[in-house]
Design a protein around this nucleic acid. Structure first.
Lengths: 252, 252
DNA sequence: AGATGATTTGAGATTATTTCACAAATCTGC
DNA sequence: GCAGATTTGTGAAATAATCTCAAATCATCT
């Protein structure tokens, strides 16, 4: 990236939102056309978004919540949405629930009914989303080291924190499932946390879109017997749904 | 808000970012002009931002970080920026620092050098900002209940968590200061946390823009003697700076 | 240093988008 | 069912974004 582009980026980061004429005034050594091209360049790299007559800084958490894993995530957005809507209908008032990290969980958070309940989560972006968009739920964030890739908390004492909290229903996400390996994820820390949550929750609800079925990730955190309810989308093959039902799991 | 506007809002919330033609296709009962007006309406209410040929959902944490307390905050943006830049120059590599919640702290987080250091914070939005924009710092988030107004953590065991963490330098924000009352804030929970941090930090750096000098808030969390370094903007009156210096505080 | 090729830049023309003004349609309260 | 207020749609005017291409700049090699 060029020096000018860095400078424009910094300028916009400070101002928050600028017009093109303001920019071309501030950077009068270059033409409007050049600045326009730089904005396009910076937009492609997700540093900002261009608005009608200028640009605005790319707000941080949006990317995390919706586009974090790139286009693949966006493509399955409809599936996740379907799952999120179904899951939201299972939320009871006045309970304490755990909400996992992940983009499905974020969509679920958006669909969460605005009622009295306690949401415990390891994903600060999801906690913020809830606290800003809803007025009634209480959000409890676990503390610890914030992982860059997953925007979720892990650390030596998350397990201790969980011990002091009672979880009624746990809404969990998985990145992979096969009959042989069970539900798996890519990170070891996540795996440990998920296991602890599942062990302490009265009811475990697993949310997973059909694109993740039949894939294996390094760390298994749950078996079929750990799960009470399974929520997936309409594209999931009937065979898997039937197998889950046969294992005594409610499939929605 | 009308039903159509709610529907448009929901549609955009799900899609993330849409074009006007896409919207006018989805809401074909109304003309493009009407939808355009609805977008304008929704933009004013901060639900979305309009882009070149459409609109995009208003990303959650952006509001918190920049416009949270409304226009008043934006007006002092330059002052806070000045403070943030000064504060960033004081950051040492390979130390453990505490970073307070608040909009000045958020701007500081943006200016934070991308080096090896440990940032402990009670503000999840600030933690996310750092983790997404920088590659080197390690972020440790305190756990507990997430407060709606301040987007900061409080709770019974934050003090216990602090006991397990060693803080070298604490970068603190205050909402008010007078000679008689010391540094004060509006919330009781914040106050308790700030006190604990100040008690355990080797060096306390107070950041405060001049607009907050000579105002009093309910809870005092620090006196002059607790502070090692005071960072303010160029509009701060010399008399106060001189008084601070007389008290043995480094004023920047 | 000078030639060569690649990249970057700026001005104007072109195209697309947004705004504006006003008339038609719809809604509201009586 | 009527009068006033609000909302909506249409097309013209204004505004902004994109495209094209030639000039300028930069980098590389001899």
């Amino acid at each position: 990236m060029k020096e000018r582009q860095e400078a424009i980026k910094r300028y916009i980061e400070r101002k928050g939102d600028v017009t093109l004429s303001e920019l071309s005034n501030a950077f009068s050594d270059w033409s409007e056309m050049t600045i326009r091209r730089d904005l396009e360049f910076l937009e492609q790299r997700r540093f900002l978004i261009r608005t009608k007559r200028g640009a605005r800084i790319m707000p941080t958490s949006y990317e995390v919540s919706v586009g974090m894993y790139g286009e693949r995530e966006k493509r399955n957005c409809d599936l996740k949405q379907e799952i999120a809507t179904k899951a939201a209908s299972l939320v009871e008032t006045d309970i304490s629930m755990f909400l996992d990290a992940g983009s499905t969980a974020m969509m679920f958070a958006r669909e969460l009914p605005d009622r009295n309940l306690i949401v415990i989560t390891s994903a600060p972006n999801i906690g913020i989303e809830i606290v800003l968009k809803k007025t009634n739920p209480t959000v409890i964030l676990l503390g610890g080291t914030l992982a860059r890739k997953t925007i979720s908390i892990s650390g030596l004492n998350v397990l201790d924190q969980l011990k002091t909290l009672n979880i009624d229903t746990a809404f969990m996400c998985a990145s992979g499932y096969t009959d042989a390996t069970g539900f798996s994820v890519g990170g070891q820390h996540e795996c440990v946390l998920k296991r602890a949550v599942i062990a302490s929750a009265r009811r475990v609800i697993m949310m997973m879109d059909s694109s993740k079925l039949n894939s294996i990730l390094p760390f298994t955190f749950a078996r079929l017997s750990d799960v009470d309810t399974f929520i997936t989308d309409s594209k999931a093959p009937e065979s898997i749904k039937a197998a889950f039902r046969a294992a005594g799991i409610e499939v929605i």
